[in-house]
Amino acid sequence: MSDFESFGLKSGIWQGAIHRDARPGRLVLVHLGERLAEARVTADAQGGWRVGAAIPAERLSDGAQSFLLVEDQGAEGEPPQPGARHLGSLTLVAGALLTGDLHAELALMRSELELLKQELRRLASDPG
C-alpha cells in the first residue's frame, strides 16, 4: 500500500502528500515509460511531505494519458532506476473521440439492460 495521497491536478500541477517520517527519495514523473521531470518535495506542518509535479502541456493530447509518480534513489536527470517504487498514477482523458466512445459504451449498456429486463420479466411470468 502506497503512503502517497493524491490531491489531483490543479493549475497543471499534480499535487499530493506522502505520509511518513523520513524524507522520500527522488520522486520522478513518468509518462509512456519516459522520465518527464522530478517532483518538488517540501515538508508540511503535519510531519509529512507535500509533493508537486508539473505536467508538461506538450504531453496533453486527445485520448487517455497516464502519468506515474515513482520513487527511487537515482541522481537528478537520470531515468528511473530499476526497482523504482510506484507511488501513484494520474489519468487524464480528453478529446472529441472520447465522446463517441462514451456514446457507444452507453448504447451497449442500454442494450444489455434491455436484455436483462426481458429475461427478468420472462422469469417472473413463468408459472413453472
Rank of each mutant, 00 (worst) to 15 (best):
F4A: 09
A43L: 11
I55C: 02
G8N: 08
Q118M: 01
G74Q: 02
K117V: 11
I55F: 05
D3Q: 12
Q65S: 09
S111L: 09
S11V: 04
G25F: 01
G25W: 06
R35I: 07
W49S: 04
L27D: 06
G95S: 11
K10N: 10
H31Q: 11
K117P: 01
V93C: 03
L102N: 02
V41S: 04
A124T: 09
E71I: 02
G12P: 08
S11K: 13
P79L: 02
A107T: 11
D3T: 14
R35C: 06
L69E: 05
L29E: 00
S2N: 12
L92Y: 02
V70T: 10
G100W: 07
A96R: 15
G33L: 02
A104C: 03
D21N: 08
L116A: 10
P80K: 01
G16A: 10
F4V: 07
V41N: 03
G95L: 05
A54H: 10
L116D: 05
A54C: 08
Q73S: 14
D126W: 08
F4L: 13
F4N: 07
D62E: 15
A39F: 00
Q15G: 11
R85D: 05
L32F: 06
R26D: 01
D44N: 15
G8D: 08
A37L: 10
E76H: 04
R122T: 06
M109T: 09
A124V: 12
L123I: 04
E119A: 15
H103N: 06
R59V: 00
L108Y: 04
Q81N: 00
A57Y: 04
A37S: 15
A39K: 03
L90F: 09
G128C: 13
I18V: 15
A84E: 03
P79G: 07
V30F: 00
S89N: 06
D62Q: 15
A104L: 12
D62L: 10
F67T: 04
G47H: 11
G33H: 02
E38Y: 05
A22D: 13
V51E: 06
H86W: 07
E58C: 04
K117R: 14
E112S: 12
R110E: 14
A75P: 05
I13T: 14
S125E: 10
R40S: 11
D21G: 14
A43D: 03
R35M: 14
E112H: 08
A84C: 04
G128K: 15
Q73R: 12
H31V: 09
F7Q: 12
H86R: 11
A43M: 05
P127A: 10
S66A: 10
L92V: 14
A124N: 14
A107W: 06
A94L: 07
L106N: 08
E38D: 13
Q46V: 09
V93K: 07
E5T: 14
A75W: 11
A104H: 13
A53D: 06
G63C: 09
G100F: 08
L87A: 02
L92P: 02
H19C: 07
I13A: 12
L27N: 03
L98P: 01
